[in-house]
């Protein structure tokens, strides 16, 4: 089976800025693929390279096996849901959704029917005659989705589509997007800076940092088995132990990750000093210093919270200490 999208050593440099630097990606057909990373890490540029809004300065991009070099956006079977939705303010919802069909020269009746179907798909039936300005943020997001789906793209690109929504709506939309993807079987490429979103929705996640992919894998792998300290820190908010500390603990000289929820305050163990505590609902977050290394522990509800400044003992299960031997 050919890959839906394949990057081979793709770079996009803006002058001396290396927005995307020698990236290799292989996205399978029908996959829900997330690109995760902090802002400026190159993930959005990668998405724009797939859409055709940017041209690579090096390497090659293949979409379903065909090189995309020099192919303008309007000739790619790829559609995008924009971060700001980019709905056309002068057109009503129906004409927005049917825009792709109008450009393709389909007759009006067919366009209207297809638009209504697409709106039903995103749970907005009967909204066709409204103007985008009359819709809420969530509704606009759905219209943008319906508009991008109407051309039946082979790959759907989503650029932080849930960024502007409030928490509750975001969680709801995450589920709906995932269900939709399963139903349509289209390849989704999803850009986000929210690791929770990436982990909960994607089949596979690529973590970006400074223009490069630092790790690609299933969400569990990314979360539990980070290969580099950046992933451990950014994705799992893990405690990253420097090689000297790891060496003292295990004898191996490499970075190690230790999840906050794996830490316990107990009778015996490693001595640490409490710096601060903060209540975060289901648990209390305790900041500590152990061997000059700042650590965070999550103490479940019901357990005793140590006072700030107190000396405590930290302990964990050996299998929770994940050594990052591969690439450190």
């Amino acid at each position: 089976m050919t890959s839906a999208v394949q990057f081979t050593g793709v770079s996009r440099h803006f002058g001396s800025v290396r927005a995307v630097d020698a990236v290799d990606i292989d996205i399978a057909e029908g996959e829900f693929f997330a690109m995760l990373g902090p802002s400026g890490s190159g993930k959005t540029t990668c998405l724009r390279l797939i859409a055709g809004f940017e041209q690579p300065t090096g390497g090659d991009i293949a979409i379903f096996g065909q090189s995309a070099k020099g192919v303008p956006p309007y000739k790619r079977h790829v559609n995008t849901v924009f971060q700001d939705y980019a709905l056309f303010p002068h057109l009503n919802v129906r004409d927005n959704v049917a825009y792709g069909l109008m450009i393709a020269g389909r007759p009006k009746a067919e366009r209207h029917r297809a638009a209504e179907e697409a709106l039903e798909l995103v749970a907005l039936p009967g909204y066709g005659t409204r103007k985008p300005s009359e819709l809420s943020g969530g509704q606009r997001q759905r219209v943008a989705l319906a508009r991008a789906l109407i051309n039946q793209p082979k790959v759907l690109l989503l650029d932080e589509p849930l960024g502007a929504l409030d928490l509750k709506l975001r969680e709801q939309m995450q589920e709906e997007l995932k269900a939709l993807q399963r139903k349509l079987g289209i390849t989704f490429v999803f850009v986000t800076h929210d690791q929770g979103e990436a982990l909960s929705m994607a089949d596979r996640v690529a973590v970006f940092n400074e223009g490069k992919i630092v790790q690609v894998g299933r969400p569990e792998d990314i979360y539990y088995r980070p290969e580099v300290p950046f992933v451990a820190d950014f994705v799992g908010s893990s405690n990253v132990l420097p090689p000297e500390v790891t060496e003292k603990l295990t004898g191996k000289r490499c970075h190690a990750a230790l999840r906050p929820e794996a830490l316990r305050i107990s009778e015996s163990g490693h001595v640490a000093t409490v710096r601060a505590t903060s209540f975060i609902g289901t648990a209390t977050r305790v900041s500590l210093v152990m061997d000059d290394t700042p650590m965070v522990a999550l103490i479940p509800k019901g357990q005793e919270i140590p006072a700030v400044g107190a000396q405590v003992n930290l302990s964990w299960q050996d299998e929770d200490l994940h050594l990052m031997e591969a690439r450190s």
Binding site: F82, D84, R147, A148
Partner: peptide, 27 residues
């Protein structure tokens, strides 16, 4: 007119002439 508006038009299959006719000019 945000850049994304024109990109969205191109993304949906409109060539630059069509983007001008249906998006840029009306806006």
């Amino acid at each position: 007119v945000p850049t994304s508006m024109l990109e969205a038009s191109g993304d949906l299959g409109a060539n630059p002439g069509q983007s001008f006719r249906y998006v840029l000019l009306p806006l």
